[in-house]
Write a protein that binds this DNA or RNA. Structure first.
Lengths: 144, 144
DNA sequence: TAAATAGCGATAATTATTCTCATTTGACAC
DNA sequence: GTGTCAAATGAGAATAATTATCGCTATTTA
């Protein structure tokens, strides 16, 4: 955890941003809840426990910054809220999601799986893929 | 076009909904702009040209209804607006999108391409896939 | 024809997100 | 260390998309 924070700090510094206490507290919340898919409001509530003075706008700004630096990915499952997801260290592609239409759970798929599909798309549509979003909606193993 | 409207009308009737003039006007706009990815506001503006008395709420309600009946799909490209996309007649899967990060254009991919991937996901994650969302972000052929 | 109900338009309310601005902080020069 | 200055922050206002409310209209049913 500490090492991960240290590396994020370096990433910020390399673009001349600072890892302020507020930003660090926010990053810690994201690390501690890596399996969840927190909304900005969720993050705000959790950060407040450790850092009660923080403002909602700061959380939004931090999430925006982290998104810009590709440390987190901003996703949208169609429920009207943006959610934020830490990108795996060293991952050059964004992971996929399984959204259960019964229980609402969201599981992650870290495997790429799209290599072949992307080759086809790049060639056939002459499109240079920089990023992707893949979500499956269905019934999860727990609800079957 | 007329036949397509006729079929949509039947689909509505089969669930005891009516194809009111407002709903028909809305559907026509969607059909006439099938290649675009209109927001609710976009649809509203276009419907107003033909049917000026229509209210924004009615457009929202109609789009919601059409989404529920799977006549359209509601998508989100991360720009804070929901967009509505007619589903291909007879299509059991939702088509994919290519979003250009240069010019903002959105192209469609009607081919499935995910058959193999879905087999793997169904088996390995024991997940019953009902629908999917796949979007690629990158540089389109026009901007390259 | 009367009653019941679905749908409508206008607008208020809600919700997520962004903006503004006065204040604070922290890195750096001296 | 102390002063300087841009960057960052907190509080709350502003914005924008969407949803809810409510009185009215139209259409179907009895």
């Amino acid at each position: 955890m500490e090492q991960r924070i240290e590396r994020i700090k370096k990433q910020l510094h390399s673009q001349s941003y600072k890892l302020t206490p507020q930003r660090e507290a926010t990053v810690r919340v994201l690390l501690e809840n890596e399996d969840d898919h927190l909304s900005a409001e969720d993050v705000y509530m959790l950060v407040k426990e450790k850092y009660p003075e923080i403002g909602l706008a700061t959380v939004y700004r931090t999430l925006e910054l982290l998104t810009e630096l590709k440390i987190v990915d901003k996703i949208n499952f169609g429920d009207g809220v943006s959610r934020y997801d830490l990108r795996q260290e060293g991952a050059d592609h964004f992971h996929h999601h399984l959204v259960c239409i019964e229980c609402g759970s969201v599981d992650e798929i870290q495997e790429d799986l799209l290599e072949e599909v992307e080759k086809v798309v790049e060639k056939r549509w002459n499109f240079a893929i920089k990023d992707h979003r893949l979500t499956f909606h269905g019934i999860c193993h727990r609800c079957k």
